[in-house]
Design a protein around this nucleic acid. Structure first.
Length: 332
DNA sequence: GATGACTCACCGACCGCCAA
DNA sequence: TTGGCGGTCGGTGAGTCATC
């Protein structure tokens, strides 16, 4: 290695904040955009220097101890010093999509994978000003992909077909990137998230007290009926309200408050400032996915519904099965 | 030693406020 | 008008501590 290239390699940063995608309504994007699968895992920035790999989360938390196999594999497959961007995931073999729930259980397992989608520095050269296509082409050249180290390809096909396929398999959705875009730190409109939307009607069985400056209520406690006529607890919904809705809901729920929990099944919370109500109000809930133990993940509240009787509210299921696994902890 | 409760650190969604 | 940021929520597993 020449003195010049050695000096150049000193330019490689110890850290840089990752580029983040902006959530938008799922829609076809114009020519000049490329689609990638939206992976559901932990964002990972990999800094490779002199054969040593340092993995960090998007908030600069070291990940080497959690994923030693990934660091080891990348060290043997990276050809030179570089900074890479990717996602650590656990692939759900049944559905062929990544699963955050699985990843949480398999942190140190050999079944996790690092899917790389960008190369930001190589041998000290700053690549962030190059167009996305050039960076991806270089990424393919400088890493020997294989084992747990995967290349995230651009997907071929129409938006409609790609999106439909991702959602049908229970995937998170798609990421669309402007093909000529530079890599910039933080949230950018050049990368957008096109998420598959799950919605479910659920019966409101209670609420929690608001905290801090919040008024009205903290979160709704919601559930659904099953064949046996019992109300199954499905989780808390604490976001999606504006101020007016919070106050309106608090008023309506206050009128139907009662002493005992209406939930007959599920791991119902017992701690904190809980209020129970007669199960007469139905909320339309948007959420990312069902957890293996039948709870909502990333729920939000779009609004109330009154076109159905509470007893008709049962869990809607996708054609494909949800991830099956044991539950390890109770709801807090 | 086993079990349960609790805290912490992640990622993510959303609203409201404020500065550019 | 738009983007950034803080605050308030959600779920998860890991780690620690107290209790049985």
């Amino acid at each position: 290695m020449s003195a010049g290239s050695s000096q150049l390699r000193q330019n490689q940063p110890e850290w840089l904040p990752p580029m983040l995608a902006t959530l938008t309504e799922p829609r076809a994007l114009p020519e000049g955009w490329v689609y990638e699968p939206k992976l559901d895992g932990w964002r990972c920035l990999a800094f490779v220097r002199d054969g040593e790999v340092k993995l960090f989360s998007r908030n600069r938390k070291p990940l080497n101890e959690s994923y030693p196999g990934i660091a080891e594999a990348l060290a043997s497959r990276a050809r030179g010093d570089m900074v890479l961007d990717g996602e650590i995931i656990a692939m759900d073999g049944e559905r062929g999509v990544s699963s955050f729930s699985l990843l949480q259980r398999r942190m140190q397992s050999s079944s996790v994978q690092l899917w790389l989608f960008d190369c930001l520095f190589y041998e000290g050269r700053d690549l962030t000003r190059l167009p996305l296509g050039d960076r991806k082409a270089l990424l393919k050249d400088v890493v020997q992909f294989g084992g747990p180290i995967k290349f995230t390809p651009a997907l071929n096909g129409s938006f409609a077909a790609l999106y439909r396929d991702a959602c049908r398999r229970g995937g998170e959705g798609l990421i669309a990137k402007r093909a000529g875009s530079r890599y910039t730190a933080g949230r950018s409109g050049d990368w957008v998230k096109l998420k598959c939307v799950n919605t479910q009607e659920l019966v409101i069985g209670g609420w929690t007290e608001p905290q801090g400056s919040r008024t009205g209520l903290g979160a709704l406690l919601v559930g659904h009926y099953d064949g046996d006529g019992t109300l199954h607890y499905a989780g808390k919904v604490g976001t999606g309200f504006d101020q007016r809705t919070l106050e309106d809901l608090a008023r309506r729920l206050g009128r139907i408050e009662r002493q005992r929990s209406p939930f007959g099944a599920g791991v119902v919370p017992t701690r904190g400032s809980l209020h129970w109500v007669a199960p007469t109000l139905i909320a339309q809930i948007g959420f990312a996915e069902w957890t293996p133990d039948g709870m909502l993940r990333h729920p939000r509240f779009p609004g109330l519904r009154d076109d159905k009787a509470p007893r008709e509210v049962v869990r809607e299921r996708r054609a494909t099965a949800v991830v099956t696994s044991r539950r390890t902890r109770s709801v807090r």
